[in-house]
């Protein structure tokens, strides 16, 4: 069947503002939107700019807005967005990050926030000769948070970031939670200043847009709330100890 991809284009060297361009193309219902974009690029218009790599939802390169939802182009099938042919599918870059070209956004701000939560195991005790022990239950406590591929879909979906551009954002909190909930990690106090800042975890108001957008099925909103509870519990124990 034929579908129309309505793609938002922007080239900083020639354009002052973005514009939409229609591409009419034959597509199979089982194809990925990324397959269709690649065919446009290789056979219709080589100037179309987008990122891609693994093509099966594990590298996080091709997050974009498809019909207004933040998704991976390689995890969205044509039949998910067009059933009958002749439909128009809207393709736009992610929000809350500057567009560098067409569907390519500058993720510097996203990765800066990720780095700010110290996303690495903090444990100053020397490791044993073999592995550090961890029970299966302790391991599963942070399981879904380890799935994050840093694609920025949640960052784009977050309604808080529309008004407060300095909010830490969903992915960075998930990445912090991944370590806070790891029985081997001792870095809670080191991460606290960033998480407990006014732009840290607190601006989140449970809209659940991040959870809906996550292509890795992470319960992001829940993890943010759990992080808030950890901070509150810590503050309570601190004040009781005084």
């Amino acid at each position: 069947m034929d579908i129309i991809l309505k793609i938002r284009r922007f080239n900083p060297e020639t354009d002052t503002e973005s514009r939409y361009q229609d591409f009419r193309i034959e597509a199979e219902p089982d194809e990925r939107i990324l397959d269709v974009l690649m065919r446009i690029k290789r056979f219709q218009d080589g100037t179309l700019g987008f990122r891609k790599s693994c093509a099966h939802g594990v590298c996080g390169s091709d997050a974009m807005r498809i019909n207004g939802k933040d998704r991976l182009a390689c995890k969205t099938l044509v039949r998910d967005v067009a059933q009958h042919g002749e439909e128009s599918v809207l393709i736009e870059p992610l929000r809350h990050l500057p567009v560098e070209r067409d569907l390519i956004v500058d993720q510097t701000a996203f990765f800066e926030r990720f780095r700010s939560v110290k996303p690495f195991l903090i444990n100053k005790e020397p490791p044993p000769e073999r592995e550090r022990l961890q029970s299966p239950k302790e391991r599963m406590a942070f399981d879904d948070a380890t799935n994050c591929i840093l694609c920025s879909a949640c960052f784009s979906a977050c309604p808080i970031l529309e008004e407060n551009q300095s909010f830490l954002g969903p992915a960075a909190v998930v990445q912090a939670f991944r370590f806070l909930a790891d029985s081997r990690d001792k870095g809670f106090e080191e991460r606290l200043p960033v998480l407990n800042a006014s732009d840290g975890v607190w601006p989140c108001q449970n809209h659940f847009e991040c959870t809906r957008a996550c292509p890795r099925a992470i319960k992001i909103t829940k993890r943010i709330n759990e992080t808030k509870r950890m901070i509150e519990a810590y503050q309570k124990s601190q004040s009781e100890n005084k």
């Binding site: 690495f120 195991l121 592995e131 961890q134 029970s135 391991r139 399981d143 370590f179 081997r184």
Partner: peptide
Amino acid sequence: AVYDLENRGLPFNRTPDGRI
């Protein structure tokens, strides 16, 4: 090499007694 990865934080699945 595997112990090093674990010590650096890699979340391996665990046996009931807590080993990799």
